[in-house]
Amino acid sequence: MKLSIGHLYPELLNLYGDRGNIACMKKRCEWRGIEAQVTEFSLSDPVDFSKLDIVLLGGGSDREQQIVCTRLQSIREDMKAYVEDGGSVIAVCGGYQLLGHYYETGDGKMEGLSLVDLYTVQDSPRLISNIVLKNSSIFPYEIVGFENHGGRTFIGENKPFGEVVYGSGNNGKDGKEGILYKNVVGTYLHGPLLPKNPHVCDYLLSNALERKYGKGELSALDDTQEIEANRYIRDRFVK
């Protein structure tokens, strides 16, 4: 079996250890004998979504995000078709904001991909903190990470990635964090997200395998160190 992972525009969107998310997906495939091929796309590269099983969209500075935003409009239709067909996407921080309709800042409105029904408005202060989420219907234990964003994101009636147990989440008000839409995970959590949350990594891998091969079961790995690191953060912030 083989999964093809596309990393979109890492030369611009590479804040906050996004490479850790790639490394995590790659290793957890390898350790199970699944081949994982990672392709990095730069701004001028064409993206053939029919050849991808997982797409990672990371975060960048506002300036860099603006550059990417212009480029994204040209791949929007293809990416939309990919998402509607059940293609897996993991979008973090700036990448998460770009999934929505727009990101409104003091300097104007950055148009997003409109792949998912959400929007973001900049506000102060920046929400900077460790964060702990819970979504027990899908994930067997907590999701931990770090958030650092000025945007306040509103997802309407969509399903969140998790309920906030500690930290601010989408907007600091409604107790929700991120979004789950088909096989898209959008979230403000870096840390990076996947290494300390192997259950989230496996969720992405499993969805991608299910779509490609009709078989999403994954063999178990020894996650003692991952779970210890996860619990350590949870216990530190959630009494």
């Binding site: 906050y16 996004d18 490479r19 850790g20 900077i128 460790n130 770090f146 870096h190 840390g191 990076p192």
Partner: peptide
């Protein structure tokens, strides 16, 4: 820095 994500860079 409370965020140690940079370890992965």
């Amino acid at each position: 820095g409370k965020d140690i994500s940079w370890l992965w860079d």
